[in-house]
Design a binder for these strands. Structure first.
Length: 835
RNA sequence: GCCCCUGUGGCGGAAUUGGUAGACGCGAGCGAUUCAAAAUCGCUUUUCUACGGAAGUGCCGGUUCGAGUCCGGCCAGGGGCACCA
């Protein structure tokens, strides 16, 4: 008796080795074929592959394998985003070297990835902590320095007191460190910066050409870059100084009743000799920056006694130090227009300042009283002398024109985006390749001295930067004067590592970061797939690096990722005991309709379906699932049911269903009678239709729809009697599932006596003539409701369809003798009778 | 507060973009096979129904011969930004 089951435990590994030995997925850049670069965001080597990785890489894998079947030369690489703080945390907690910890994690995760059978080109694998990689990164950084894109300045930084490092604005969430969760402090430090603001305009404009990016991500980047246009002008102050302010509403200038400056504005600092002023400034700095604190924070001001002269009316406006004005945005000073800005309104109410209407619905409402809130909306300008009855937009332009003509102000664009602070006081990162010399100042490390490598002997017993404390590492000679000097001990933010890795995958010469000709062959990435959490940081930085390197003349690519796909999370039900403690899915079982613990049978509450996380214990380990069901069932599950951009709820019954389908397909493949003859036209037609539809679905990344179509055709083939058409259908199914369930497909391919591997096979051809149905089902409606369906030959005339519809007994019953006023016929689709 | 997205059976979700709502999967039920079980196969599964039908895609209204799809107004859930002048 033959065992007619597919056995993944023997087949999976066998085919994985076969692909590896044949070099099936190694990309040949000299190939004449059209090129496809498929990339998933490379993982941080945290220790284990989780289901989120599996979902991400399965999607990319289906695309890579499909593209190969379509005759493309595919680059589908994998590597490791290997620098970062968890390695240092592990070093501190477990007394291991960050490098050793990282490399053993890579080892383990690579073995896990290989078990899933991904079509990866492992020959291009690298980790960002390889000195070769970060050495080239240092070279690129020096190129950017030479091009004036890097600078150093003393700046107030976000200091994380727990991790003892500086954080980028992007890494501060609600005033807390993104990793430690500690309240972030302000400190002044000399920091390295990348001039991303020089690229603000093109990064914003470039979004326009990214047609295949989700609107959501583009919108988030647009908001992050935050372009606004307005007027910058200076008030003459009563103390003889000038006060530059920035406003996006110059049209409301006649409504200004005060000025407000930030607590750390130079003018405020100059007045800080007065203890009352100093006390107020201190109070402003203490204010929390959390969402909740801001929501409830009262608008506070301190009248400096100085007044500003209104540029048109000459009226004296009081100048306040105010807690709601930010030094980092615009000029750190604003004109307060209470009538049409909510913050100004609240401030004016508190300090009894004039609230004047200068915008109204129309000119006749100029004297309409203000309500209990500002009116920031559109309208016409009133109570504003020469601006009266102009639209808001015209008035803006007019005020800017007069300011420029009068030489007291100019139209200006202001960005929310700040320069990217890249200094990190950390060991496990790319050393910043600069040397500090007392005689020569800051000197770049000569390129032939690169890489500046990290020392191996480091101690993590005390917090802070181990490079700073290292006895020898930072001491060196100045490349310029040969005198004693010290190295820069800051390392680069890890986001720099992931800002160009896709270039290194495409081309990896040893003597330079990449080769322009090779980059031209592969870039841009055709499909980039990863999590929505990188919508701003990583994706903005990678776009910036690509544009910066293009500007230096490294290549012609401006946008690195032609199409972006952000996949949803893998979620799972949560389980908890009465005391609120979480239980892992392996600790519970279903007892009838209820959940109980496996040990002890205690009642368990099944909670919300949320992202798999260690803290909620609702994680499922891919390794265990692969042991149980094989790689193909897991891959199939990842593609089934949920649209890829949405969350995928993991379920035990779902994976079981996938395991069943793997066996069902195997039985179908085994049922092939190679000598079968005869045509089954209906099945043949459905096969051709599926070939077209599944291809379209895969190209649109609608894997759930492709899966559903494969189920349908499988069901039809199972029910059909033996025929050539049935063999054609099964062959089509085998090819269509091969990107999704490659091990099963190879095993069946071999068993059916086919040459070579299906990984090298082509996507099946369809016959356009076979797609057309000869009969169609026509819906018949009356009063907008479906009354009957009828079968008609495709292309039947309107008259025929109308006659057929009216002949229907059900339709006649519904008409009940009513007069037919109109009949709408949509050929091959429906007849709608109007009475 | 501002901006954006999403609401369809018990569940995940389809619906050629204005043309038969609920494909496909999961779950559930009934049956076949079996000494029994697993596995497998078949049928049923939106709701109500006086079995003729009627209602139904978060709610209210509109446009249309026809609305899950378009428009207006709500409600709920999720996400992003956040004192950005």
């Amino acid at each position: 008796m033959t065992d007619n089951r597919f056995d993944p435990s023997s087949a999976d590994g066998r085919w994985q080795r076969a692909w590896e030995e044949a070099g099936t997925f190694a990309a040949d850049s000299n190939s004449e074929k059209p090129k496809s670069y498929i990339l998933e965001m490379f993982p941080y080597p945290s220790g284990r592959i989780h289901m989120g990785h599996v979902r991400n890489y399965t999607m990319g894998d289906v695309l890579a394998r499909y593209k190969k079947m379509r005759g493309h030369e595919v680059l589908h690489p994998m590597g490791w985003d290997a620098f970062g703080m968890p390695a240092e945390n592990a070093a501190m907690e477990k007394k291991v070297h960050p490098g050793d910890w990282t490399r053993s994690n890579i080892e383990a995760m690579k073995a896990q990835l290989k078990r899933i059978g991904f079509a990866l080109d492992w020959t291009r694998e690298f980790a960002t902590c390889d000195p070769e990689y970060y050495g080239h990164e240092q070279a690129l950084f020096l190129d950017m320095y030479e091009a004036g894109m890097v600078y150093r300045r003393s700046s107030e930084v976000n200091w994380d007191p727990v991790d003892m490092t500086v954080l980028a604005n992007e890494q501060v969430i609600d005033g807390k460190g993104w990793r430690s969760g500690a309240e972030v402090e302000k400190r002044k430090l000399d920091q390295w910066f990348l001039k991303i603001t020089d690229f603000a305009d093109e990064l914003l404009e470039g979004l326009g050409e990214l047609e295949n990016w989700p609107d959501k991500v583009k919108l988030m980047q647009e908001n992050w870059i935050g372009k606004s246009q307005g007027l910058e002008f200076s008030f003459d102050l009563s103390n003889g100084a000038k006060l530059p302010v920035y406003t996006t509403r110059p049209d409301t200038i006649y409504g200004a009743s005060f000025c407000a400056i930030a607590a750390d504005h130079p003018l405020a600092q100059a007045l800080a000799d007065d203890p009352a002023v100093a006390a107020f400034i201190d109070e402003c700095k203490r204010g929390g920056t959390t969402a909740a604190a801001l929501e409830t924070a009262e608008k506070l001001g301190f009248d400096t006694g100085v007044t500003a002269r209104h540029p048109f009316t000459g009226a004296p406006l009081p100048v306040f130090i105010a807690n709601f004005v930010l030094m980092e945005y615009g000029t750190g000073a604003v004109m307060g227009v209470p009538g049409h800005d909510q913050r100004d309104f609240e401030f004016a109410t508190k300090y009894a300042l004039a609230i004047t209407r200068v915008v109204a619905g129309d000119i006749s409402q100029a004297d309409a009283p203000m309500g209990d809130a500002a009116e920031p909306g559109d309208g016409v300008v009133v109570n504003s002398d020469f601006l009266d009855s102009m639209t808001v937009d015209d008035a803006k332009a007019e005020v800017i024109r007069r300011a420029e003509d009068g030489g007291w102000g100019e139209g200006k664009t202001v960005w929310r985006l700040r320069d990217w602070g890249i200094s990190r006081q950390r060991y496990w990162g790319t050393p910043i390749p600069f040397i500090h010399c007392d005689a020569c100042g800051i000197v770049p490390v000569p390129k032939d001295h690169l890489p500046v490598t990290l020392p191996d002997d480091v101690d993590f017993e005390t917090p802070g930067n181990p490079l700073e404390r290292h006895p020898k590492w930072k001491h060196c000679t100045c490349p310029k004067c040969g005198g004693e000097a010290v190295r820069e001990t800051d390392t680069l933010d890890t986001f720099t590592n992931s800002s160009w890795y896709f270039l290194r995958f495409a081309s990896q010469p040893s003597d330079k970061p990449f080769d322009a000709a090779e980059i031209a062959k592969w870039m841009p990435v055709e499909h980039y797939i990863g999590g929505i959490e990188h919508a701003i940081l990583h994706l903005l930085y990678a776009r910036f690096w690509t544009r910066a390197l293009a500007k230096i003349g490294k290549f012609d690519v401006t946008e690195p990722f032609a199409s972006l796909f952000t996949q949803g999370m893998v979620t799972h039900e949560t389980y908890s005991l009465g005391d609120g403690s979480w239980l892992s899915p392996t600790e519970v079982r279903k007892d009838g309709a209820d959940w109980v613990t496996i040990e002890g049978g205690a009642p368990v509450a099944a909670g919300r379906v949320v992202k798999m996380s260690k803290s909620k214990k609702n994680v499922v380990d891919p390794d265990n699932i692969i042991d149980q069901y094989g790689a193909d069932a897991v891959r199939w599950f990842m593609l089934s049911d949920s649209p890829p951009e949405r969350d995928l709820p993991w379920s035990e019954s779902g994976i079981e269903g996938c395991g069943r389908f793997v066996q069902r397909l195997w039985r179908l493949f085994e049922s092939v009678d190679a000598d079968a003859v005869g045509e089954d036209k209906e099945l043949a037609r459905r096969s051709h239709q599926a070939i077209v539809a599944v291809a379209e679905d895969i190209e649109a990344l609608s894997f759930n729809k492709a899966v559903a179509r494969i189920y349908e055709l499988t069901g039809a083939a199972e029910k059909a009697g033996q025929s050539e058409s049935r063999n054609f259908a099964i062959n089509a199914i085998l090819h269509m599932v091969s990107p999704m369930m490659p091990h099963l497909a190879e095993e069946a391919w071999a068993k059916l006596g086919q040459e070579g591997m299906i990984a090298d096979a082509r996507w099946p051809e369809h016959d356009a003539a076979m797609l057309v149905e000869d009969e169609v089902t026509i819906a018949v409606q009356h009063k907008g409701k479906l009354r009957d369906t009828l079968t008609a030959p495709k292309g039947a005339s309107k008259e025929n369809l109308e006659a057929l519809a009216l002949a229907s007994e059900k339709v006649q019953r519904s008409l009940d003798g009513a007069e037919v006023r109109k009949v709408i016929v949509v050929p091959d689709r429906l007849v709608n009778i109007v009475t």
